[in-house]
Computed example of a mutant assay.
Amino acid sequence: QVVASASFDGFVCIWSEADAKEARGDGDSGDGGDVAMAGASTSGNGDGGSGDGGWRLASSFKASRSACLDLGFAPPQYGLRLALSFQDGAVKFFNALDTFRCADWKLVQAFEMGSGSGTTEVCHKICWRPFSQDMPEMILIGGSRQAAVLIFESDLDRWSQVAELAAAEGPAPVSDVAWASACGKANELVAFASGKVAYIAEVRDALDHLEVTTVARCEHGAAVFQVEWNRLGTTLATSAGDGSVRLWRPDLTNEWQEMAQIN
């Protein structure tokens, strides 16, 4: 297990699960003074099983001079790969050179939000597309004006925007994004939150481009902060500033309806 954390100073810390021997200090920590433990358990039975070891600081590095706004690991099929977005509009991708120790990380791609349009934009949220065989890497990002889908062109070693998702009221900051599992679906579903509405959009492959169609507006009485799909991508959970959590599913006519609310 690996956990990444980043802060306002642009530093990134990579934490890996340590075994019980490392947590007790009986063995070589491997990184000398750079090792830090968090939440090590002393109540285990000594068999070295999961939960006995706690966590160790595997690596830390300066990724930017700007504050980190969001980060996320790629699906494991792409390797140990981390995406980060920063306050200055940069989105950067780092790969682990050694997936076992997680000590060394290399910047492999980067792009600036809004660089092609000449406008300044910030990526508030970033989400990887769930892995599918024979499909390229894709991400869904939530910016200060809209959400967008980007695809990784491996032959050119770059990320390119292939679709835009805007709120019905026009350009507005996006507070969260989520990409549903493609399992058993003819078309894929994504969700993004902007203002008091969470939007559900359908993404279809139309030969040389992606077609995006908004299929539902999930309205709240306050600003929507988070959106999250269930594992199958059939139910969307949304949470808002009024303390409510709502669950949304399509009915028999494929119209999205609120099915439950938690206050």
Rank of each mutant, 00 (worst) to 15 (best):
G32C: 05
A90C: 11
W55P: 06
V162P: 10
I141P: 08
A180E: 03
A4H: 09
V197C: 03
V215H: 03
A191I: 01
C127K: 07
T119A: 14
C68F: 03
L189D: 01
E164S: 15
S7M: 05
E188Q: 10
A223P: 11
A260L: 09
P75D: 01
S132I: 12
A180R: 04
D176N: 13
Q133R: 12
D9L: 01
D26H: 08
Q226V: 15
S59I: 04
G142C: 00
D251P: 10
M138F: 03
A23N: 08
A18W: 07
E169A: 07
L232K: 12
E228R: 14
D28L: 06
A166L: 08
D205W: 13
V3D: 06
F93R: 01
G114V: 02
A4L: 05
G30Y: 03
L210D: 00
P173Y: 08
L165S: 04
E228V: 13
A168V: 10
V149N: 01
S175R: 10
A58I: 01
G46T: 04
E112S: 13
Q87W: 13
F11K: 14
L82D: 04
M113N: 06
C68D: 07
W229V: 02
S5P: 14
T99Q: 10
G46V: 02
G233V: 00
A201L: 00
R231N: 08
D251S: 05
F86M: 00
S41F: 08
A38Q: 12
P250F: 01
E228A: 15
P130V: 05
W128G: 07
R145T: 15
S41W: 06
E153W: 11
D242Q: 07
F192Y: 04
Q146E: 12
I126E: 04
A74V: 09
D251Y: 02
